[in-house]
């Protein structure tokens, strides 16, 4: 199975990259663009077959390495 992980900055943490992207979209003429937040997307192939165990393992990976929980949140999705 495969883990799909989104790592994003916590709300309240200034995201200068997202801000720059938002500004650029505006200047390209895209109307109605609100706040933009940029993050990371990570895919991991897993040999684990139990969804629950896989999810717990990946959450551990996030805490330990994939996200810096001082500034980032993470969301894990396990797919067949």
């Amino acid at each position: 199975m495969k883990a799909k992980i989104h790592v994003t900055l916590k709300s309240g943490v200034l995201d200068p990259q997202g801000k720059a992207v938002g500004h650029a979209l505006g200047s390209l003429g895209f109307a109605g663009v609100g706040e933009v937040r940029q993050g990371k997307y990570i895919e991991i192939e897993l040999s684990e077959t139990d969804v629950g165990t896989a999810k717990a393992n990946v959450e551990e990976m996030c805490k330990k390495l994939l996200a810096n929980t001082v500034i980032e949140n993470y969301a894990v999705e396990i797919v067949g």
Binding site: V13, L14, P16, Q17, A20, N68, V70, I71
Partner: peptide, 17 residues
Amino acid sequence: LTEARLLPGALMRNAGL
């Protein structure tokens, strides 16, 4: 040292990018 939690806080991308 911040990533290893030996120091408080975090270092993010420069505001000027």
